[in-house]
Amino acid sequence: MAAQKRTSIIEAASKLFLDSGYDGTSLARIAEAAGVSKATLFKQFTTKAALFEAIVTEYWRVDDEEAPVPEPGNLRAGLETIGRRYAGLLTQPGMAALFRIVIAEVPRFPELGETQFRLGKMPYFESVRRYLVAEKTAGTARLDDAEMAATQFLGMISNYVFWPRMLLPHWEPDDSAIAGAIDQAVLTMLARYGTSKTSR
């Protein structure tokens, strides 16, 4: 029941932040929209900033037990797994709305952008960077700058799967188009960073 209420609060807050703005949404309105008492909401989230942090963390959450970072040794398979997982994160319901909230409010509330970067994007990005370093150690990737390589790989996927949604509300590539974009990103990475040990 507590988990259901938390989900209801996060969903209601996300919608209200998008519709009315971060500043224009009170915790009382969120409680009403979520169908919970103000006491229940305040028990879980004492401030609006804490609630926004929970929203960001929820959208970027990857279950490490169900979706562990790939083991090094097969660069193609590892990148395919990471690519599919990243596309799944970016296309989940609400992710585009979360970015729109941040983009709209960051001039007045820069801490929202910092929260999205610190709790959302960077932990995921860092896991990809560490994976690429592990592949280099295993001899299946040749790279001097794992941070740049991670930026390139994730950027190739997000530039097709996600960023057009910021300007084109009906941008909805189908599963085959998304899979094709991931495949092309993987092939580009293999051509640039693969070694003789890489499974091609």
Rank of each mutant, 00 (worst) to 15 (best):
H170Q: 13
A34D: 12
R29S: 15
S158F: 01
E32N: 14
A141P: 08
G194L: 04
R129F: 03
R61S: 15
Y131T: 02
K136W: 05
F125M: 06
V133N: 11
L132A: 08
L112I: 03
E32S: 14
R84E: 11
L79M: 11
E11Q: 15
S199M: 08
A31N: 08
V36W: 14
D23F: 07
A185L: 00
G73E: 11
T40W: 01
S199I: 11
D145E: 12
S127E: 11
K5E: 14
M95D: 00
T40K: 01
I82A: 01
D19M: 09
Y193I: 06
K15M: 11
A141F: 10
Y22Q: 03
K197I: 00
R108G: 13
R130K: 14
T151V: 05
L119A: 10
D145N: 15
A77T: 00
A54N: 07
D175L: 09
S20T: 08
G120Q: 03
A149T: 08
I9W: 04
A146E: 14
E135L: 10
R6S: 15
I178F: 00
L168T: 13
E58P: 00
A3G: 02
L167T: 12
L132K: 05
R76I: 00
E105F: 00
V102C: 04
S14N: 08
T137H: 07
P123A: 05
A33C: 05
T25A: 04
K43G: 14
P110H: 06
I182L: 02
I103P: 01
S26V: 08
F153I: 05
G24D: 02
G78Y: 10
F162W: 09
A77F: 01
S14D: 06
L51E: 13
R29L: 14
P68A: 11
T140P: 03
T25P: 02
